[in-house]
Amino acid sequence: MKTTLLDGMPPAKFDKHIIGNLLLTVATPDEVRKEKMLIGVRNEEGDIYRLIGATKVNSFNNASEELEDLGLVDELQHAEEPQDGFDAIFREA
């Protein structure tokens, strides 16, 4: 899986736990957006600051489970289609 921080967006306080729990390769925003499935992570202000891209459904599901284990919730868990290009958007509960 690939990840990137978005310019100008402050990382969330819990961001170090994301890096510690997921095996991520740092890439450019364009490279991450080319992945099959895209996860956004919101900071405390409600802005998406981190993108995570997964090529395989299994990788996407593993990343989602890890983020849920950190106490984050997926805003799109009941959505039937991606929203604004995101398959999941995680935020603090």
Rank of each mutant, 00 (worst) to 15 (best):
P82Q: 08
Q77L: 14
I48P: 05
G71P: 06
E68F: 02
D69W: 00
I48F: 11
L51S: 12
G46A: 10
E75H: 05
I52Y: 08
G71N: 10
L67T: 03
L72F: 00
Q77K: 14
D74M: 02
G46Y: 08
E75D: 11
D74C: 07
A63D: 08
L67A: 05
Y49L: 01
T55R: 15
T55W: 03
E80Q: 14
S64V: 04
E80P: 00
D69P: 00
L70Q: 07
N61A: 11
Y49G: 00
S64L: 02
E65L: 03
D47R: 12
T55L: 12
E65H: 03
H78Y: 12
E68D: 05
A79T: 02
K56N: 12
R50S: 03
S59V: 10
N61M: 10
L51T: 11
A54Q: 10
V57W: 13
D69I: 07
I48S: 05
K56Q: 13
A79L: 14
K56G: 04
E65R: 09
A54P: 05
L76Q: 04
G71A: 11
D74V: 03
R50I: 00
L51N: 09
E65T: 10
F60W: 08
G71Q: 04
A54C: 15
L76P: 05
N58V: 06
S64A: 14
E68W: 00
F60I: 06
L67K: 02
E81T: 11
T55V: 13
P82W: 09
H78M: 04
E81R: 14
I48E: 11
I48G: 06
D69L: 15
N58M: 08
A79N: 12
N58C: 03
L67F: 02
V73N: 03
A79Q: 13
Q77C: 11
R50N: 03
I48Q: 04
T55M: 11
L76M: 10
V57H: 15
I48A: 06
E75F: 00
A63L: 04
N61S: 10
E68P: 01
S64W: 01
I48H: 08
I52A: 08
N58W: 03
G53A: 09
Y49N: 02
D47P: 01
E66C: 01
I52M: 08
L76H: 04
